[in-house]
């Protein structure tokens, strides 16, 4: 049987002109797998950086001012999109690494933990250099999930009686005297003494900001500010709130 089998095999190799697949094909496959692994680590870094950015800009401190259900506030503030993305890319990095030539030799837990650690390091770097903020700003324009979250934030920041307003700066004399146009089209005069401008809050016309303070005169739209924060993401008219305001104004007129 020995010679028969080897004879048959050699004969088949010659007859069908079988040749070993070229080395570059295997190298290309190996490189692709490694590239896929690195891409998943990179995306994991983006996810973590964005999560860090969202969490540090979620205005947790203003929750006591507003009459919202905490669980809803939490749900709307947590970056679920990025949490799910991170879980997804963690699986992908595990899958890709374990499909490298010797990846199977590594304990799966070590692969997952190491991937998350690498993404964490990258994510913190992205956060520090401002890449996470850019990602958040760009995504908030294009992803529906972000619109829902943005609408909720608009609702939160449209409570002048609670000392919260937000809008686009339409005129600025100085950092203690400027005007903003809110999402509902109203122009508020913002005044104060040594108003605290948080980092990344831009004091220029066109910039979007959130303002904390006290409504001095609601009818004349005068707001006494203590602090200005940057508004991250799109600011657009919220039809539900507009309808409620129109109804309130109609009742007042009657």
């Amino acid at each position: 049987m020995e010679e028969k089998i080897s004879g048959k095999i050699l004969e088949k190799i010659k007859r069908e002109k079988i040749i070993p697949d070229p080395k570059w094909k295997f190298l290309a496959k190996d490189y692709l797998v490694w590239i896929a692994f690195m891409v998943s680590i990179f995306v994991g870094g983006i996810a973590i950086g964005s999560m860090a950015f969202v969490l540090t800009n979620s205005d947790w401190d203003i929750y006591p001012r507003i009459g919202e259900d905490f669980s809803q506030y939490l749900v709307m503030s947590l970056p679920f999109f990025w949490i799910i993305a991170l879980i997804g890319v963690s699986f992908l990095s595990f899958y890709n690494y374990s499909h490298t030539k010797k990846g199977y030799r590594t304990n799966p837990y070590i692969i997952v933990v190491s991937s998350i650690a690498l993404s964490l390091a990258l994510g913190l770097l992205f956060y520090q250099i401002g890449l996470s903020e850019k990602v958040e700003r760009n995504l908030s324009r294009s992803i529906p999930y972000y619109q829902r979250s943005a609408d909720y934030r608009i609702k939160i920041w449209n409570q002048p009686e609670q000392g919260l307003v937000a809008g686009r700066i339409v005129q600025i004399r100085n950092k203690d005297d400027f005007k903003i146009e809110c999402f509902d089209g109203n122009i508020w005069m913002i005044k104060g003494e040594n108003i605290l401008w948080r980092p990344r809050a831009v004091s220029e016309e066109g910039a979007q900001v959130k303002v904390l303070g006290e409504a001095e005169d609601v009818r004349r739209y005068i707001f006494h500010a203590k602090e200005v924060r940057p508004w991250i993401g799109e600011m657009r008219k919220n039809p539900i709130i507009n309808e409620r305001m129109d109804r309130d104004e109609f009742r007042e007129e009657r």
Binding site: I5, K12, I13, I18, P20, K101, K102
Partner: peptide
């Protein structure tokens, strides 16, 4: 068994450049 052996050895031959000397 013979058929499987042939398949195995042909597959091994085709993938010989993928054999890692390690």
């Amino acid at each position: 068994v013979e058929d499987l052996l042939q398949e195995i050895f042909i597959a091994a031959y085709r993938n010989l450049n993928d054999f890692d000397q390690g």
